[in-house]
Design a binder for these strands. Structure first.
Lengths: 132, 132
DNA sequence: CAAGATTGATTCGTCAATCTTC
DNA sequence: GAAGATTGACGAATCAATCTTG
């Protein structure tokens, strides 16, 4: 199962790159940002949300910033910290990517499972992270 | 779910490296070899089994060969081809790695699911590869 | 000296190009 | 010219070391 999901993730990544020039690591980083009303998160908090080391997030945000999808902003309260802020371009690019990404997930994954199997999966995984 | 499984795989990989100096890609490549009675497979066939591009397999086998776990062997029938052959050292190293890898899978994954959830997972994933 | 963040250096994975044999 | 396999070159991920501010 780990093998299959890895394979699906690889294919999703490839398509996202081909269709939107965006890696899945970048996509994953944008998700928590677009969910925020102010579209910003501190670097460390964002890194934790997407389960990535801080150094990896630095590279990811650097790439996104260069393409104008995210910008860094210093904090007033703490001169050490920095926000990653989603730009208007970034929000638009993300939504476009999200549409085809969801389509791809349906095609490669969800459509291959009937209702009973989907329910079984939902049951098996619910609260996995929270359980011991 | 894809996120969680990716995270588990990352942790499994890290532990395999720390405990046995072996990546999961290497581990995955050894599995089909140890299953064969003659402990050998053609490079292209092995690449297909583990769902990796041929070029990736070449690197993986190169690393394993350097450590004496695998050796390359030319084919009598076709001078283009090459076998990857598991050595005695390789078989021993693999079995040791396999023990702790299975322990790690139990700890990070299986132990967090009760029987009902394990059955649900098995049901959801059975024959996934074979279905449309 | 701890926390937030970045950088240097290394490794891993992959594509496209290449080499050899069929 | 196609198949089997490897190599060159590049991108992505991550650890340890570093820089700055608290």
């Amino acid at each position: 199962m780990l093998r299959v999901t890895t394979r699906i993730r690889r294919e999703l990544d490839k398509r996202l790159q081909a269709e939107h020039g965006m890696t899945m690591a970048e996509y994953d980083a944008l998700v928590p940002l677009i969910d925020r009303p102010d579209r910003r998160l501190r670097m460390a908090d964002l890194a934790d949300e997407i389960l990535q080391p801080r150094s990896s997030l630095t590279r990811i945000v650097a790439g996104l910033e260069q393409r104008g999808l995210v910008r860094r902003e210093p904090l007033a309260e703490d001169a050490r910290g920095a926000y990653a802020v989603l730009t208007a371009d970034g929000a638009e690019a993300f939504r476009a990517a999200q549409r085809s990404h969801h389509d791809n997930i349906r095609e490669l994954f969800l459509s291959r499972l009937d209702d009973a199997r989907l329910r079984a999966l939902a049951f098996a995984w619910e609260d996995f992270g929270e359980r011991a």
